[in-house]
Design a protein around this nucleic acid. Structure first.
Lengths: 218, 218
DNA sequence: GTCTGTGAATACATTCACAGCC
DNA sequence: GGCTGTGAATGTATTCACAGAC
């Protein structure tokens, strides 16, 4: 399939073709009128724009079940990510191979970061250790952090943090599940609201001090 | 702190106070003019609306590193989720305790679902097994699925699927990281675009056949 | 005076619809 | 004829600003 039309892509993605064309137009005029988009060229342009063509060395700190799962996750390599090192505070873990890499001790964190030019760090430690690890990563030069620990991290200006809360996705499913159940019998006592509330719950919004909606009780 | 104002909550959440008030107003009029919102009452109302006050039994299928990490994840209980069972296809795993629960064999999947009234399932299997597990979950009565396997699942009408791709969050960080790097020297050759493209990348949008943006190469 | 709740105003996103190019 | 790229039109979300309750 050498070319593809906006209509085909839009159908596959479940969106309106005009939206797709307008979105693509922000990246440049990569289509040909009367023909469509050259697939290979389009893939390259989008990949470049998203940063997929770059090599991104990352470190994973905290090699428990989750850290190991991340280290073994196959989807990283195809998106340009390279696991530069696995780091854990437990001396007993040091040297043990996980996903083909020897686990390194936390003592080496700073040198690993600078030797490999790492700018992205993944924190998969227990909550108690996360802020301390974060501080060390930032001090060593990391400017983007993906946080799986159930804590809100505070970081200096210029450092990006994204928090992944594995239970939030479940929360969203349960929310919809509840509505399904409610509709079976009585119509909901609350008037049908705009999609905003539902969507706000699922977005990874980023406020000044973190990205957890303040209204969600812990 | 018995009461809280929309302004305080909005500042904490990093949003505009009018938006916060308008959002709350969709749930009802739970505030008091001149005073603010009663914290306890507000927490209860929001919890109820989100389904936090209900008990949601869930099953986790696929007890590898990720499944074990999910089973051990502390955040579930406080949001009303209860891990009803851990299920794995490997007979060698059967009976082994993970996070205090004995792993059950896949053969028991159907009976576990119906005995516990499970309506939410978590798939943490390898990609190859995911669709099959999904089909069995759905046939057994599950109507919401959280999918960690790197596959798009097809499900009948009325079943909700949310896909968690652990590398997408990294992708988003890398995207911003790239822009940071680009701004240091030359201003980007591409005109600053609306936030739409960036946000689209981070939303868990749901098309008819799944929720992976079609434009993202695998 | 304070702070909510909400119409009105503004900003933003999506879709329509068609001129222009292949 | 077919399909992109994009102004114009529509639809939705956010913010303003203030009447009304405490």
């Amino acid at each position: 399939m050498p070319t593809v039309s906006s209509e085909e892509l839009a159908t596959a993605a479940g969106v309106n073709s005009a939206k797709l064309r307008k979105d693509f137009s922000y990246l440049g005029s990569y289509g040909t009128r009367g023909v469509g988009y050259d697939v290979e060229y389009l893939v390259y342009q989008i990949s470049r724009e998203l940063g997929l063509t770059q090599d991104w060395p990352v470190v994973i700190v905290g090699i428990g079940n989750l850290g190991a799962a991340l280290a073994n996750y196959g989807g990283f390599a195809s998106r340009g990510f390279r696991v530069a090192a696995l780091i854990d505070a437990d001396p007993a873990m040091a040297g043990k191979p996980v996903a083909g890499l020897p686990v390194r001790h936390t003592d080496e964190l700073e040198s690993i970061i600078s030797d490999n030019g790492v700018s992205i760090g993944v924190i998969a430690t227990p909550a108690g250790a996360a802020q301390q690890v974060c501080d060390r990563l930032v001090a060593a030069g990391v400017t983007s952090i993906l946080n799986f620990a159930p804590t809100v991290l505070s970081v200096p200006e210029g450092v990006d943090v994204r928090k992944v809360d594995l239970s939030i996705e479940l929360q969203i499913l349960a929310f919809h599940e509840q509505r399904k159940a409610g509709e079976e019998n009585a119509p909901s006592p609350v008037p049908p609201r705009s999609g905003a509330a539902v969507r706000a719950a699922s977005e990874n919004r980023k406020g000044p001090d973190g990205d957890v909606p303040a209204v969600m009780p812990a």
